[in-house]
């Protein structure tokens, strides 16, 4: 998928959502992440993909919600919101973590890398390219998490065999069961 078509898809989604604005707003105010600055908010700085972002969040806001709903970095996905699927995987100081299981306030002095931070300009990261070449996705819901986890799996050196990759990628589930192609893509990129 090119950056261009991705942009168009999101524009369409946004336009479509205006039809249900009323309910959307109602749920938004109910979710902690979307709540505007309140008395209980704290000012924090998050360093994401090389940029500092100042924002006010309630302490209960997870890193995942801060990324998606406050910084508009929606590449990081929310699957289960309880540590079980891996869709929300990001790198914290180069180590893979699940952003739904940590609070934004706890990650202030951390260098966060999300899927948006992998490409260098127009040049995709080798693992992103390998995912395309190996057709390692269907719906794409798990893909950003798979790629972030795969990047770390490679840098950790856990790619000596397909079995080893499967074990060390076990924190990332794929409902579309693209596992063979995901393993192949990681093997390619690890070379």
């Amino acid at each position: 998928m090119t950056a261009d078509s991705e942009f168009k898809r999101r524009t369409v989604l946004k336009a479509g959502s205006t039809a249900v604005t009323a309910t959307f707003v109602a749920t938004r105010t109910a979710t902690p992440a979307a709540a505007a600055q309140t008395e209980s908010s704290v000012d924090i700085t998050l360093r994401v993909n090389g940029h500092d972002h100042r924002l006010a969040v309630e302490p209960r806001v997870t890193l995942l919600d801060a990324l998606r709903e406050r910084l508009d970095l929606t590449g990081t996905k929310k699957g289960c919101d309880r540590g079980e699927c891996g869709a929300c995987t990001v790198l914290a100081d180069g180590r893979r973590i699940k952003s739904c299981l940590t609070l934004a306030v706890m990650r202030q002095n951390t260098e966060i890398t999300t899927i948006e931070g992998l490409a260098r300009g127009d040049r995709l990261h080798p693992l992103q390219e390998a995912f395309i070449r190996r057709d390692a996705l269907q719906c794409g819901g798990c893909t950003p998490g798979q790629i972030m986890s795969g990047v770390a799996c490679i840098s950790e050196g856990h790619t000596r065999s397909a079995d080893e990759i499967r074990e060390w990628m076990s924190g990332n589930l794929c409902r579309c069961a693209c596992y063979p192609n995901i393993v192949a893509a990681i093997q390619d990129a690890a070379k």
Binding site: G83, R96, K98, H158
Partner: peptide, 9 residues
């Protein structure tokens, strides 16, 4: 135990 991500955290 758990997954690589959880073990890092």
């Amino acid at each position: 135990s758990a997954s690589p991500q959880v073990r890092n955290m």
